[in-house]
Amino acid sequence: MGTKEGNRMSNLDDLMHRVARLEEAELARNLLHAYAETLDDPTPEAVAALFTEDGVLSVPAGDFAGTAAIAGFYRDRLGPGASEKRHFIMNVRTRSQGPGLVEVASYFVFTAREPDSGLGWGQYRDLIEVADGRARFHHKTITPHLATDLKRGWPAHGA
C-alpha cells in the first residue's frame, strides 16, 4: 500500500470516526427532547426507561441509582397533587467523551398549571451512553435555579 493510498485510508477512518461522533451527539440531543416530552405526560416507569439500568439521577435531595430508584424518585414527585408541567430545553452543548459516550449540558425552563400557575428554570448536565442506535442517560444531574408561582414571581434579591 503506497503512502497516498495509506493517507486516503487514514482520512476515511478519520471521517468515519467523526461521523460516528456526530451521530452519537444527535442521538444524545434527541434523548433530551424525549425526556422533556416524557415529563409533559409522565409515568415514573417511562422516565426511568430513559436511563441505563445502572444510571444515576443526581438532584439536590441526593443521588438515585438504578432504574428502580429513579422510578421511585419520579413516583414521589408525580403523584397526587403534582402540577401539570411543560418542559423546554435550550442552549444544548454536546461533547464526545469517547466512543458511545456523550456529555450534554443544557438549560431548562418549565411552566406549571395546577394547583398554582408557576415557572422555573435550571441546568441539566448529562452523561449519555449511546449503544445500538439508542441513547440513554448514564448520569443526569438536575440543578434547579428557580421554582416559583406567578403570585410571588421572580423577586429581586432583598425584595
Score class of each variant (00 low, 15 high):
1 M>R: 11
1 M>I: 11
1 M>F: 01
2 G>P: 12
2 G>C: 11
2 G>Y: 04
12 L>E: 06
13 D>T: 14
17 H>I: 07
18 R>G: 03
20 A>I: 03
20 A>R: 11
21 R>C: 11
22 L>K: 09
23 E>N: 04
23 E>M: 08
24 E>R: 00
25 A>D: 11
25 A>Q: 14
26 E>W: 02
26 E>A: 06
28 A>K: 04
28 A>S: 13
29 R>S: 14
31 L>T: 04
31 L>W: 08
32 L>Y: 08
33 H>M: 03
33 H>S: 13
36 A>H: 00
39 L>D: 03
40 D>Q: 11
41 D>V: 10
41 D>W: 06
44 P>H: 05
44 P>D: 04
48 A>R: 01
48 A>L: 05
48 A>V: 10
48 A>M: 04
48 A>S: 02
49 A>N: 10
49 A>I: 07
51 F>H: 09
55 G>Q: 07
55 G>T: 02
57 L>M: 12
59 V>P: 01
60 P>R: 11
61 A>Q: 14
62 G>Q: 12
62 G>P: 02
62 G>K: 11
62 G>W: 05
63 D>W: 02
63 D>I: 01
66 G>K: 09
67 T>W: 00
68 A>G: 03
68 A>V: 10
69 A>T: 02
70 I>M: 04
71 A>Q: 09
73 F>D: 00
74 Y>G: 06
74 Y>N: 04
74 Y>D: 00
75 R>S: 15
76 D>M: 14
76 D>I: 02
78 L>V: 01
78 L>D: 09
81 G>W: 05
82 A>N: 03
83 S>C: 08
84 E>Y: 12
86 R>N: 03
87 H>N: 14
88 F>S: 10
88 F>W: 02
91 N>G: 07
92 V>K: 06
97 Q>L: 15
102 V>T: 11
102 V>E: 08
104 V>S: 06
105 A>S: 13
107 Y>F: 08
109 V>F: 13
113 R>K: 13
114 E>P: 01
120 G>F: 00
120 G>T: 02
122 G>M: 01
124 Y>N: 06
125 R>Y: 09
126 D>R: 01
129 E>F: 04
130 V>W: 08
132 D>G: 14
132 D>C: 00
134 R>T: 14
134 R>A: 13
137 F>D: 00
137 F>R: 06
141 T>I: 14
147 A>W: 04
148 T>R: 09
149 D>E: 01
150 L>T: 15
154 W>T: 12
155 P>H: 10
156 A>L: 14
157 H>S: 13
158 G>S: 07
158 G>W: 03
